[in-house]
Protein backbone atom coordinates (compact mmCIF):
# COMPACT_ATOMS: atom_id res chain seq x y z
CA UNK A 1 0.00 0.00 0.00
CA UNK A 2 1.12 3.52 -0.67
CA UNK A 3 1.39 6.20 1.96
CA UNK A 4 -2.01 7.81 1.53
CA UNK A 5 -5.15 6.09 2.72
CA UNK A 6 -8.64 6.59 1.36
CA UNK A 7 -10.38 9.56 2.97
CA UNK A 8 -13.92 10.01 1.68
CA UNK A 9 -14.48 12.97 4.01
CA UNK A 10 -12.08 15.27 2.19
CA UNK A 11 -14.44 15.11 -0.79
CA UNK A 12 -16.94 17.16 1.21
CA UNK A 13 -14.75 19.88 2.71
CA UNK A 14 -12.25 20.10 -0.15
CA UNK A 15 -13.87 18.65 -3.29
CA UNK A 16 -11.44 18.26 -6.19
CA UNK A 17 -12.38 20.85 -8.84
CA UNK A 18 -10.73 22.58 -11.73
CA UNK A 19 -10.21 25.82 -9.87
CA UNK A 20 -9.70 26.85 -6.28
CA UNK A 21 -12.80 29.05 -6.44
CA UNK A 22 -14.92 26.07 -7.50
CA UNK A 23 -13.58 23.97 -4.63
CA UNK A 24 -14.42 26.81 -2.25
CA UNK A 25 -17.97 27.13 -3.59
CA UNK A 26 -18.62 23.41 -3.53
CA UNK A 27 -17.16 22.79 -0.07
CA UNK A 28 -19.62 21.90 2.69
CA UNK A 29 -17.78 24.31 4.97
CA UNK A 30 -18.85 27.35 2.94
CA UNK A 31 -22.37 28.76 2.54
CA UNK A 32 -24.23 27.82 -0.65
CA UNK A 33 -24.60 31.51 -1.46
CA UNK A 34 -20.94 32.42 -0.93
CA UNK A 35 -20.12 35.43 -3.10
CA UNK A 36 -16.45 34.82 -3.80
CA UNK A 37 -16.87 35.51 -7.54
CA UNK A 38 -18.56 38.78 -6.68
CA UNK A 39 -15.63 40.08 -4.60
CA UNK A 40 -14.89 43.65 -5.65
CA UNK A 41 -11.61 43.90 -3.74
CA UNK A 42 -13.00 46.68 -1.57
CA UNK A 43 -10.93 45.66 1.45
CA UNK A 44 -13.73 45.93 4.01
CA UNK A 45 -12.69 42.49 5.23
CA UNK A 46 -9.08 43.47 5.78
CA UNK A 47 -9.91 46.77 7.41
CA UNK A 48 -12.11 45.06 10.00
CA UNK A 49 -9.87 42.03 10.52
CA UNK A 50 -8.13 41.63 13.91
CA UNK A 51 -5.48 39.38 12.38
CA UNK A 52 -4.71 41.95 9.67
CA UNK A 53 -4.43 44.60 12.38
CA UNK A 54 -1.51 42.85 14.05
CA UNK A 55 0.08 40.64 11.37
CA UNK A 56 0.77 40.61 7.64
CA UNK A 57 -2.31 38.48 7.02
CA UNK A 58 -4.61 40.12 4.45
CA UNK A 59 -7.97 38.47 3.70
CA UNK A 60 -8.63 40.66 0.64
CA UNK A 61 -5.35 39.43 -0.88
CA UNK A 62 -6.19 35.83 0.00
CA UNK A 63 -9.45 36.14 -1.94
CA UNK A 64 -7.61 37.71 -4.87
CA UNK A 65 -5.13 34.84 -4.99
CA UNK A 66 -7.90 32.26 -4.80
CA UNK A 67 -9.67 33.97 -7.72
CA UNK A 68 -6.41 33.93 -9.65
CA UNK A 69 -6.18 30.22 -8.91
CA UNK A 70 -2.84 30.69 -7.19
CA UNK A 71 -2.49 27.34 -5.43
CA UNK A 72 0.55 28.51 -3.46
CA UNK A 73 -1.90 30.39 -1.22
CA UNK A 74 -2.42 27.21 0.79
CA UNK A 75 1.24 27.33 1.77
CA UNK A 76 0.99 30.92 2.95
CA UNK A 77 1.62 30.74 6.65
CA UNK A 78 -0.43 33.89 7.30
CA UNK A 79 -3.72 32.02 6.78
CA UNK A 80 -3.10 30.37 10.14
CA UNK A 81 -3.57 33.78 11.80
CA UNK A 82 -7.31 33.91 11.17
CA UNK A 83 -9.36 34.04 14.40
CA UNK A 84 -12.53 32.63 12.81
CA UNK A 85 -14.30 35.66 14.29
CA UNK A 86 -16.44 36.06 11.13
CA UNK A 87 -16.14 39.85 11.16
CA UNK A 88 -15.18 39.74 7.46
CA UNK A 89 -18.17 37.48 6.83
CA UNK A 90 -20.45 40.07 8.46
CA UNK A 91 -18.91 43.14 6.82
CA UNK A 92 -18.47 41.91 3.25
CA UNK A 93 -20.88 43.81 0.97
CA UNK A 94 -20.90 40.94 -1.57
CA UNK A 95 -21.79 38.08 0.75
CA UNK A 96 -18.34 36.64 0.46
CA UNK A 97 -16.78 35.01 3.50
CA UNK A 98 -12.98 35.21 3.65
CA UNK A 99 -13.01 33.18 6.86
CA UNK A 100 -14.90 30.28 5.28
CA UNK A 101 -12.52 30.44 2.31
CA UNK A 102 -9.56 30.29 4.67
CA UNK A 103 -11.07 27.29 6.45
CA UNK A 104 -11.22 25.44 3.14
CA UNK A 105 -7.67 26.48 2.26
CA UNK A 106 -6.47 25.18 5.60
CA UNK A 107 -8.20 21.85 5.05
CA UNK A 108 -6.48 21.66 1.65
CA UNK A 109 -3.18 22.45 3.34
CA UNK A 110 -3.76 19.76 5.96
CA UNK A 111 -4.52 17.21 3.23
CA UNK A 112 -1.07 17.96 1.86
CA UNK A 113 0.57 17.57 5.23
CA UNK A 114 0.99 21.29 5.85
CA UNK A 115 0.32 22.48 9.37
CA UNK A 116 0.17 18.98 10.84
CA UNK A 117 2.52 20.07 13.57
CA UNK A 118 -0.34 22.20 14.86
CA UNK A 119 -2.92 19.51 14.31
CA UNK A 120 -1.13 16.57 15.82
CA UNK A 121 -1.53 17.81 19.39
CA UNK A 122 -5.26 17.37 18.78
CA UNK A 123 -5.14 13.73 17.81
CA UNK A 124 -6.39 12.64 21.22
CA UNK A 125 -9.42 14.91 20.87
CA UNK A 126 -11.49 12.62 18.64
CA UNK A 127 -11.02 9.64 20.93
CA UNK A 128 -11.95 11.62 24.04
CA UNK A 129 -14.97 12.92 22.20
CA UNK A 130 -16.00 9.42 21.13
CA UNK A 131 -15.65 8.10 24.67
CA UNK A 132 -17.11 10.92 26.75
CA UNK A 133 -19.07 13.03 24.27
CA UNK A 134 -17.30 16.19 25.35
CA UNK A 135 -14.51 18.32 23.92
CA UNK A 136 -11.31 18.64 25.88
CA UNK A 137 -8.51 21.14 25.50
CA UNK A 138 -5.43 19.15 24.43
CA UNK A 139 -2.95 18.33 27.21
CA UNK A 140 -0.19 20.41 25.67
CA UNK A 141 -2.36 23.52 25.84
CA UNK A 142 -3.58 22.72 29.35
CA UNK A 143 0.08 22.63 30.40
CA UNK A 144 0.50 26.17 29.16
CA UNK A 145 -2.69 27.27 30.92
CA UNK A 146 -1.29 25.80 34.14
CA UNK A 147 1.74 28.04 33.79
CA UNK A 148 -0.40 31.08 32.98
CA UNK A 149 -3.09 30.82 35.63
CA UNK A 150 -2.82 31.19 39.36
CA UNK A 151 -3.51 28.92 42.27
CA UNK A 152 -7.26 29.59 42.27
CA UNK A 153 -7.57 27.87 38.90
CA UNK A 154 -5.39 24.91 39.88
CA UNK A 155 -7.39 24.32 43.04
CA UNK A 156 -10.72 24.55 41.30
CA UNK A 157 -9.60 22.16 38.55
CA UNK A 158 -8.58 19.59 41.16
CA UNK A 159 -11.93 20.09 42.78
CA UNK A 160 -14.18 20.22 39.72
CA UNK A 161 -16.49 17.38 40.73
CA UNK A 162 -17.23 18.79 44.16
CA UNK A 163 -17.64 22.32 42.78
CA UNK A 164 -20.16 20.98 40.29
CA UNK A 165 -22.08 19.01 42.86
CA UNK A 166 -22.22 22.04 45.18
CA UNK A 167 -23.89 23.84 42.27
CA UNK A 168 -26.34 20.97 41.85
CA UNK A 169 -24.85 19.85 38.53
CA UNK A 170 -24.33 16.26 37.45
CA UNK A 171 -21.44 14.62 35.63
CA UNK A 172 -19.85 16.24 32.61
CA UNK A 173 -19.76 13.17 30.41
CA UNK A 174 -22.53 12.07 28.09
CA UNK A 175 -24.75 9.11 28.93
CA UNK A 176 -25.41 6.93 25.93
CA UNK A 177 -26.86 3.82 27.56
CA UNK A 178 -23.96 1.66 26.52
CA UNK A 179 -24.73 1.95 22.84
CA UNK A 180 -21.43 3.62 22.02
CA UNK A 181 -23.43 5.90 19.75
CA UNK A 182 -20.87 8.61 19.25
CA UNK A 183 -18.05 6.21 18.46
CA UNK A 184 -20.26 4.30 16.04
CA UNK A 185 -21.28 7.52 14.29
CA UNK A 186 -17.73 8.82 13.96
CA UNK A 187 -16.61 5.39 12.77
CA UNK A 188 -19.37 5.14 10.19
CA UNK A 189 -18.92 8.66 8.89
CA UNK A 190 -15.21 8.07 8.31
CA UNK A 191 -13.81 10.39 10.98
CA UNK A 192 -11.36 7.87 12.41
CA UNK A 193 -10.20 6.83 8.96
CA UNK A 194 -9.39 10.44 8.20
CA UNK A 195 -7.67 10.85 11.53
CA UNK A 196 -5.60 7.71 10.88
CA UNK A 197 -4.49 9.19 7.57
CA UNK A 198 -3.50 12.46 9.25
CA UNK A 199 -1.61 10.61 11.96
CA UNK A 200 0.24 8.61 9.36
CA UNK A 201 1.13 11.76 7.48
CA UNK A 202 2.27 13.46 10.66
CA UNK A 203 4.61 10.53 11.28
CA UNK A 204 6.09 10.34 7.82
CA UNK A 205 5.92 13.84 6.40
CA UNK A 206 8.05 16.69 7.44
CA UNK A 207 5.85 19.67 8.07
CA UNK A 208 6.51 22.51 5.65
CA UNK A 209 6.63 25.07 8.40
CA UNK A 210 7.20 24.78 12.11
CA UNK A 211 4.87 26.28 14.63
CA UNK A 212 6.36 28.04 17.61
CA UNK A 213 4.68 25.65 20.03
CA UNK A 214 6.03 22.53 18.41
CA UNK A 215 8.27 20.84 20.96
CA UNK A 216 8.85 17.47 22.54
CA UNK A 217 5.55 17.35 24.40
CA UNK A 218 3.80 18.23 21.16
CA UNK A 219 4.50 14.75 19.88
CA UNK A 220 1.61 12.38 19.52
CA UNK A 221 1.74 11.20 23.10
CA UNK A 222 -1.98 11.18 23.71
CA UNK A 223 -2.62 8.80 20.83
CA UNK A 224 -3.57 5.96 23.12
CA UNK A 225 -6.14 7.93 25.13
Amino acid sequence: MTGTMADPLSEYDTPACETLAQTVKKSLRTSDSIGISRCLQCGACTSSCPAARFTDYNPRMIIKRVMENDISVIEDESIWNCFYCYTCHLRCPRNNSPTQVVQVLKQMAINKGIGLDRLKVLFGYGDTFAEFGVSKIPDLYVGRMKDDFDIRWHEFKEDLDSVRSELGLGTVNVKDSGRGEIRAILEGIGFFKRQEKLKQMARTKKPIFESDTSNESGEITDEAN
Binding site: L122, I182, F191
Partner: peptide, 22 residues
Protein backbone atom coordinates in the same frame (compact mmCIF):
# COMPACT_ATOMS: atom_id res chain seq x y z
CA UNK B 1 -27.37 13.91 29.99
CA UNK B 2 -27.66 12.22 26.59
CA UNK B 3 -26.70 15.40 24.77
CA UNK B 4 -23.09 15.53 23.61
CA UNK B 5 -20.87 18.51 23.00
CA UNK B 6 -21.31 20.12 19.55
CA UNK B 7 -17.72 19.43 18.28
CA UNK B 8 -17.28 23.18 17.76
CA UNK B 9 -13.82 23.33 19.32
CA UNK B 10 -12.68 20.45 17.13
CA UNK B 11 -14.27 22.04 14.07
CA UNK B 12 -12.57 25.38 14.60
CA UNK B 13 -9.30 23.69 15.55
CA UNK B 14 -9.50 22.47 11.90
CA UNK B 15 -9.73 18.86 13.06
CA UNK B 16 -13.42 18.06 12.62
CA UNK B 17 -14.89 18.13 9.13
CA UNK B 18 -18.36 19.42 8.32
CA UNK B 19 -19.90 15.97 7.75
CA UNK B 20 -18.78 14.56 11.12
CA UNK B 21 -19.94 17.71 12.90
CA UNK B 22 -23.31 17.49 11.16
Amino acid sequence: DEQSCCTGLGYYFDLFDQMSTT
